[in-house]
Design a protein around this nucleic acid. Sequence first.
DNA 1: GTCATCATGTAAGCCGTTACATGATTGC
DNA 2: GCAATCATGTAACGGCTTACATGATGAC
Lengths: 228, 228
Amino acid sequence: MLELAILGLLEDQELHGYEIRKRLRDELGVFSNVSFGSLYPALSRLERSGALEAVEETDRPAAPPVPMTGSLSGERAAMRAARTTSTRGRRGRKVYRITEEGRRQFTVLLDSDPGPDDARSFGLRLAFARYLPPQARLRLLERRRAQLAERLSETRAAARDAESRLDPYARSLVEHTTESTEQDISWLDRLIEAERARVPAAPASTRATGPAGAELTVSTVVREGEIR
Amino acid sequence: MLELAILGLLEDQELHGYEIRKRLRDELGVFSNVSFGSLYPALSRLERSGALEAVEETDRPAAPPVPMTGSLSGERAAMRAARTTSTRGRRGRKVYRITEEGRRQFTVLLDSDPGPDDARSFGLRLAFARYLPPQARLRLLERRRAQLAERLSETRAAARDAESRLDPYARSLVEHTTESTEQDISWLDRLIEAERARVPAAPASTRATGPAGAELTVSTVVREGEIR
DNA sequence: GTCATCATGTAAGCCGTTACATGATTGC
DNA sequence: GCAATCATGTAACGGCTTACATGATGAC
């Protein structure tokens, strides 16, 4: 999940760790305040797996790759020079760039079914939906809709059973959750409709017409970024 | 969190593990499908800490306390007898009962501030709100409201900055999330109002009148139980 | 000079998960 | 007899958190 988010951010531009954290918080809303304790190890993993390549930033933006020399003193000197000469001396920040392999991994991650989907992973995928081919985009939306619909009907069945012994607080909670889910579903319906209009040549897949049209009143929307 | 949920369920009645799992799923909605891998260890911990006491179920519901004798063979025999004689022979289920110490722990857990509150923990606490004294109930609601309000204004600020580079999908996501949060907040406002009406002798605390009245358009409701 | 912010990282731990192992009871 | 459900547990692992350690730079 975190790796998906990182790769997605780096699709657009190269960034260093600290900045990635900011974007995750402000841009994506998801992962409000990822901790460095999980961010930096994730970056290392991605680098080891060949999805990212890191460049010690020397001076100006878009500096030449500067392959690691192994000569520490040399690199220190370069850094010091950069510091004195230019815009603003920065500590050696590690700027990450996505590789072809990384792009491939991103596509795979983005399009894979996360099983019992939670809101966060859906929110994240939707935020990167522009990188998905139209049919995959539609599949993402429909999958989510189906899950919410199923949840909603289960919740309703359970609520019918337990309603009598529910106190006002629990009841209000259940009702509010149900309403929210319903709104999430109708939001998804709008997105799905818009998406179908954009791709009228939709190869009427069995999945799309089957369970999706069955019932209309399901829900539980995005609500990622809840953890803070 | 799990322990809070378990203690809350057992406030009402004694239950065995398998049944607790069901209730967690159907009644509370939270923890849809807690795994046994976390449920049973949690029960053991609670028992060790003295919050629960376990009785091997012998036969009829509401069997006499049957203090542990230490004589395994004796208990086994009782079980076997029960199996043959009565309603339906069951495997030796371990029925848990909350102790006074457990009730104390429950109260503490329920009323403690879970720091950066996530939706799940709020939902859970609200479901057990009947066990809270009125002022604590009000505090819970106001705390949650304040958190949502803060989140909302942060999201809005971030959205203003980043709006230009947001594609339609991300933008729709942000908008929908914002709306949901607003609705969550107004739901909370209704609950708070109702609560204040019930306790007109509210000792006008500084926390209540200060930040809570500042802005009206914040939100992000319950949405627990998302993980399934 | 010292404080806030930027910047990177490690270590330990929490809280949950899946997968595995076991076995009794009920219904077909 | 066999499968589904009830019932309890252990082991390994996952993904994130907090707390800690370190240090540069810029503003006051």
